[in-house]
């Protein structure tokens, strides 16, 4: 490219790099296809890896051409963001840490630098250095974009799992005609207890339940906040015309509640879920008795 060489001195290093990337796209993509990042993700065919590499080179050239080598939000990256996210996610699934991914993206730089140096064999040293610096900055920005997408991918996963946990963790069980129970398991925070309250109240309407049992056997600790949530749920259920029973308070938790000075006197409590059920049945006029010859009566 002799014409470009003569014009080179009037152009910014970034545009120079952009031209170089466009010109050598195929070579760079071929070399990247052998780099760890692309090789481990596109295991099926090398062509796919080369294709992915070409897309990334294109994006880099667009970013360099727009003279925004330091801007991770640059428009050029938008096109490959999805692909980078998929690549990073695939590496993360394969067990690579953020550091590993960062190192692998960094490993994409040396082959390009080599090609760049070979591109200007007789240009002034200062000019070559400028281009190399620009390229390094550009690759640094690429690394930033990859890590950013990888991290936001992780956040999405956490958010999704949190929602799943909310759904999974609050089943409302119909124990008997007019009696529903919620076995609470795990730590209760504000978001979860809100979900518990809503699902319980909805099921009270749906099942036409006069009694609702909150079983907290699976709740490891009760602090004043959790107690407050429980009392709110009980009060809301009462307003709707259902009676709420809290069961399964373990001795240690009972001690904590007393130590904290929490007044649960407005809440009806029973030692176990069975006791709560027996109470609710008794209030409805039903009774559990053993058949003749069967095991002992359980009340």
């Amino acid at each position: 490219m002799p014409e470009q060489d003569t014009a080179a001195h009037r152009r910014t290093p970034a545009q120079e790099v952009a031209d170089f990337l466009r010109g050598r796209q195929e070579q760079i993509a071929q070399r990247w296809a052998d780099a760890a990042l692309f090789r481990t993700v596109f295991t099926h065919s090398r062509d796919e890896a080369v294709e992915a590499g070409r897309a990334v080179v294109d994006a880099l050239a667009a970013v360099a051409g727009a003279d925004t080598v330091e801007d991770a939000e640059s428009g050029g990256f938008h096109i490959v963001r999805d692909q980078l996210a998929r690549t990073a996610a695939a590496r993360a699934r394969a067990g690579a840490s953020i550091t590993d991914i960062s190192r692998e993206v960094d490993a994409l730089r040396p082959p390009v630098t080599e090609l760049l140096l070979a591109e200007f064999p007789d240009a002034p040293a200062e000019h070559v250095r400028e281009c190399a610096t620009t390229l390094t900055v550009l690759m640094g920005t690429l690394r930033l974009v990859v890590l950013e997408t990888a991290l936001s991918e992780g956040e999405d996963v956490i958010h999704r799992q949190r929602l799943q946990l909310l759904e999974v963790a609050t089943p409302v069980i119909k124990l008997w005609e007019g009696i529903v129970a919620v076995p609470l398991i795990g730590t209760l925070d504000s978001a979860r207890s809100q979900v518990v309250m809503e699902t319980l109240l909805d099921s009270i309407v749906e099942q036409h339940a006069r009694f609702a049992i909150l079983d907290i056997t699976g709740v490891p600790t009760v602090d004043s906040l959790v107690a407050q949530h429980l009392m709110k749920t009980v009060a809301a259920a009462r307003l709707m015309g259902a009676e709420c029973i809290v069961s399964g308070i373990r001795p240690a938790i009972a001690q904590t509640i007393v130590h904290l000075g929490i007044d649960l006197s407005s809440v009806l409590t029973r030692a176990s879920l069975a006791d709560a059920l027996a109470y609710a049945l008794g209030q409805q006029g039903a009774d559990i008795v053993a058949r003749e010859g069967a095991g002992s009566e359980h009340r």
Binding site: M197, E198, L201, D202, I204, V205, A236, A237, L239, M240, G241
Partner: peptide, 8 residues
């Protein structure tokens, strides 16, 4: 007949 949302 109080609704859940009202009770909450």
């Amino acid at each position: 007949g109080m609704r859940p949302a009202v009770a909450i």
